[in-house]
Computed example of a mutant assay.
Amino acid sequence: MTSPLLTPAAVQRRRTWWHSGVLLAVLVCAVYLGQRHWPVVRSGAGQLAVADEGWLLVGATAAVATWLCAALAQQGAVAERLPGGRLLAAQFAASAANHVLPAGLGASAVNLRFLMRCGLTAPRSASALAVKGAAGALSRAALIAVLAAACPGVLRVPDVPVVAPIAALGAAVLVAVVLRGPLRSRCGRVAATVLADIRAVHSRPQRAAALWGGSLAFAAAHSLVLIAVTRAIGLPLSPVRVALLYLAASSAAALLPTPGGLGSLDAALAFALSTTGAPAAAAASAVLGYRLLTVWLPLVPGLLVLGVLIRRRAV
């Protein structure tokens, strides 16, 4: 509640200073990240300078398409109509924020604030993010299953010790014991909200098509970025195999809560490409090219867009 001693002009000035401070913090973060990782950006740019420019352009186009696909999937996760321009800008900003905070917290925070600014309540905004995340995970799993059938022998199921399912069962029992009383009731209300949103979205064919089509296209576009980079540097791997390796490696890297999968995804991708016969140097160049197109080149512009959205109170 605003103090009665403050005039409306003073309140507005306070808000302006607060938003300007947040914008300055975002800019400082952008400069810090750019300075810290500048050797990586410079060396990667040097290696890609001799690559095929046509394929790099294809990869850059696919990287831009990932933001469009994310916007489409986010629109499909809610029944209400979202403002298209701000929705796309929010996805661009969310992709940058996702590389600053761990485990997707940056993207989730930006999208949560955006949906709330669009008039959705906090529970419904969180529910929309859960619906989008579930659709993305299921779409990725479906693509992995299809591509694994097309490339038999590429993925190998690891041997699981007998103790692993026993430990999983014990963890499930422990969770069931912990989630009791008020906490269980609260979880039940959250689940009811998510299920209600799922029914509302799938009762409208256009929203369901946007949700699932955008989720599938998002994973496919990221795969296309890596495929284009491998083609640009002349890595002799089939596009289907590269897509399968990317989807499997990114799914495994998601288990490690690093910002945007930095480090974990790079290592998983390089290892996956190397195990299929790619030279280590070429695999490293492919991963670096993928990171340049999806992270380093759009990072500072994305953070600038985030600052503008914060300044305009769109998130």
Rank of each mutant, 00 (worst) to 15 (best):
W67S: 13
G214R: 03
V194L: 05
T121N: 04
S185N: 10
L224F: 11
L293W: 10
R36C: 03
E53T: 15
A97T: 01
I198S: 00
T294I: 09
R312S: 01
T275G: 10
A77R: 07
A30P: 05
L68F: 14
A168M: 11
L27K: 00
P236G: 08
L273D: 11
E53Q: 13
D197T: 04
R184A: 05
A176R: 06
L169T: 14
V163D: 09
N98S: 10
T294M: 13
L244R: 03
A30H: 06
L255W: 00
L155T: 02
A200P: 04
A45S: 14
V287C: 12
A192R: 13
M1A: 04
L293Y: 10
L247N: 00
I166V: 15
L304I: 14
P39W: 10
T276H: 12
L48R: 05
L179C: 12
A164L: 11
S108R: 12
A73D: 06
W296P: 14
V146S: 00
S251K: 00
V300I: 13
A142Q: 02
A248N: 01
L23P: 00
A10P: 09
A122S: 13
L138V: 13
V240D: 01
T276E: 15
S3H: 10
V131S: 04
V157K: 03
C151F: 08
I227S: 02
A10Q: 15
A268L: 05
L87S: 04
Q206M: 09
T7S: 15
V295Y: 15
S285H: 15
L309N: 07
L24M: 06
V229Q: 03
G54N: 04
W38G: 03
L183G: 04
H37G: 01
G214T: 02
A137I: 00
I166N: 03
A232H: 00
V50K: 14
P165F: 06
L72M: 13
G84W: 14
A70Y: 12
R140S: 10
G106H: 07
G214Q: 10
S238L: 09
G76P: 05
C118R: 13
S251N: 07
A280Q: 15
D266F: 10
L143A: 12
R81P: 09
V194R: 04
A268R: 06
R140V: 06
Q75Y: 04
P301M: 05
S125K: 07
L179W: 05
R189G: 08
L224D: 01
A248D: 00
A209M: 14
A141S: 13
V163I: 04
A278G: 14
L72H: 09
L255G: 01
L120I: 11
L256D: 03
R13Y: 12
V178I: 11
